[in-house]
């Protein structure tokens, strides 16, 4: 049902004011839940934001990497810094981005064009998708007058679903990206930046698919 709704929304959005990147994005068919996972291309993405509040947060930087044929292709990795309207403020210490570095970034509109371009025909993968999805959606509405219409896989929600289906929460219980990776025996990454987190998420999804013996997209959509 959700898939049908998404397709209707995408069809509806096409009748609006044409904007090149967004239209090309809508032109490409989205994979159906019955699609074979091996044939699907995923955009594993992570965003650094100015705050954790979905309504007011701005994008500081974004990184993504594409998974195709069941492999994370590092040649597809991209990361962009957004030139902000205001100042970076407190979150700078968290992300290690200073005003100067951010100043060298691109206008937000160009960055969302790039994201939307990458997402065409693909599935978006985010760990703890809520905030990132809301932010991308807001950016799309602002720039194209239409929402972000893409199937989303949320690795955190996926793990949460697995644990609640088993009626128990695992030892330690943390669903943080680094902790979950530990659970799946994946190595630890030292750095905390959006591209590394995007790669980390991509690897986690591969591990989750392998452990669940998932074969269809519908198996991992939450």
């Amino acid at each position: 049902m959700k898939h049908a709704l998404l397709r209707t929304q995408r069809w509806w959005s096409r009748r609006r004011e044409p904007t090149a990147p967004y239209d090309r994005f809508l032109d490409k068919q989205i994979p159906s839940p019955a699609a074979d996972l091996a044939a699907i291309e995923f955009v594993n993405l992570d965003i650094e934001t100015t705050s954790l509040d979905a309504a007011s947060a701005d994008m500081l930087s974004v990184g993504w990497v594409v998974t195709r044929n069941g492999r994370v292709d590092l040649s597809s990795a991209e990361t962009w810094i957004v030139r902000p309207s205001g100042e970076v403020g407190d979150s700078a210490s968290v992300h290690g981005l200073t005003d100067t570095m951010v100043g060298a970034g691109l206008d937000w509109g160009i960055v969302i064009d790039k994201v939307v371009h990458a997402l065409a025909g693909r599935v978006l993968v985010v760990h703890h998708a809520g905030l990132d999805k809301a932010l991308l959606d807001r950016m799309c509405r602002q720039r194209y007058g239409a929402p972000l219409l893409v199937p989303v896989v949320d690795t955190l929600a996926l793990e949460h679903r697995r644990q609640s289906q088993r009626h128990h929460i695992e030892e330690g219980g943390s669903l943080k990206l680094s902790d979950l990776r530990g659970t799946y025996g994946l190595p630890r990454y030292a750095a905390h930046d959006c591209l590394v987190d995007a790669i980390a998420t991509a690897e986690l999804l591969l591990a989750m698919i392998a452990h669940r013996h998932a074969t269809r997209l519908g198996d991992i959509l939450v």
Partner: peptide
């Protein structure tokens, strides 16, 4: 080299 890598997971 970093860019020439594809990452796969094997059970």
């Amino acid at each position: 080299c970093a860019k020439g890598i594809e990452i796969a997971y094997y059970r």
